[in-house]
Design a protein around this nucleic acid. Structure first.
Length: 280
DNA sequence: AAACAAACCTGTGCGC
DNA sequence: TGCGCACAGGTTTGTT
């Protein structure tokens, strides 16, 4: 579910509501959520600790602790982080609960029906061994800043379907299926173009589209789809979905040209929506 | 190197 | 109403 804008919205919520509050107790239900280490490792790593900051790289949430360790959270497809008053009824699939110091007493919940998400406390001085994928992560368009020249180099040094490249977290980190399709539409480029075939003007449009789609989606608090699965840390949905031009609009008239219908095909194993008239 | 399928899980929506 | 199947915001692994 969550892509860069949704994770960024969650990060801001963690920064505002959780950073600086000591964790007094930790509960871990499903061990699968902490599979990288163990239930006991997460409990030992977080009990008595305080998050000192909340960072994001791609879809990874990274929170340094006052112990010197670092907390990593990845929401994958269906993960959610929520802050709620203690003694509130927890939703189904609440796998981890962090009890936070303060008045009123509150809890941070990790809720994840499909259990693809994970939480882990790791030692940042040993990052290459404990979190190897972080070292291999591509440039984050927002956190790192992505220049047009950088993008041009990434595109031209490979011969890959554009959509597959944009979704590859080792190349560019943070774009998922929704924002990929929306970005390609705004840039007026087809998903099945080869990355090294883009002209200068097309690269310029793609670069601008990546940044403007992600920034607008962050501004809107992300996208909450019909299943209302994605919500921010206070349980509020985002509203960028009202600006979707192609995602989940197969068969409907294109909002940009008003003349063609949005088509849906499978690309790189993902459903892909595009306008055959606007995108070339 | 790149494309593709399958795997990891659970829930929902659709056609019959 | 009930059943079975396809599919879902992500990522890794293994195979062509």
């Amino acid at each position: 579910m969550p892509e860069l804008p949704e994770v960024e919205t969650v990060r801001r919520g963690i920064e505002a509501q959780v950073v600086g509050r000591r964790i007094t107790r930790v509960e871990v239900g499903r061990e699968r959520t902490v599979r990288r280490t163990s239930r006991q490792a997460l409990i030992d790593g977080l009990t008595g600790a305080t998050l000192t900051a909340a960072h994001r790289r791609g879809k990874y949430l990274l929170c340094p602790l006052d112990t010197g360790d670092e907390l990593m959270v990845h929401l994958r497809m269906s993960g959610r982080l929520m802050v709620a008053d203690a003694n509130t009824e927890r939703p189904p699939h609440t796998h981890v609960v962090l009890h936070l110091e303060g008045d009123p007493r509150q809890e941070l919940w990790f809720v994840d029906p499909r259990t693809f998400g994970e939480m882990v406390v790791f030692d940042p001085t040993n990052i290459a061994v404990e979190m190897p994928e972080l070292a291999r992560m591509g440039v984050d368009p927002i956190t790192d800043g992505l220049t047009r020249a950088q993008l041009a180099a990434l595109l031209r040094s490979r011969h890959r379907q554009l959509k597959a490249l944009l979704l590859d977290q080792h190349v560019i980190a943070g774009i998922g299926n929704i924002y990929c399709d929306e970005t390609l539409h705004l840039a007026r480029v087809r998903h099945d173009r080869s990355s090294d075939s883009l002209t200068g003007p097309e690269i310029t449009r793609l670069h601008a589209a990546i940044l403007s789609v992600l920034e607008a989606a962050i501004e809107a608090g992300g996208s909450t789809l019909a299943d209302t699965q994605y919500v921010d840390i206070e349980g509020q949905g985002g509203w960028f979905q009202v600006h979707h031009k192609v995602y989940d609009r197969a068969g409907q008239r294109c909002l940009t040209c008003g003349k063609a219908d949005i088509q849906r095909v499978m690309v790189a194993g993902r459903s892909t929506c595009f306008c055959p008239r606007c995108q070339r």
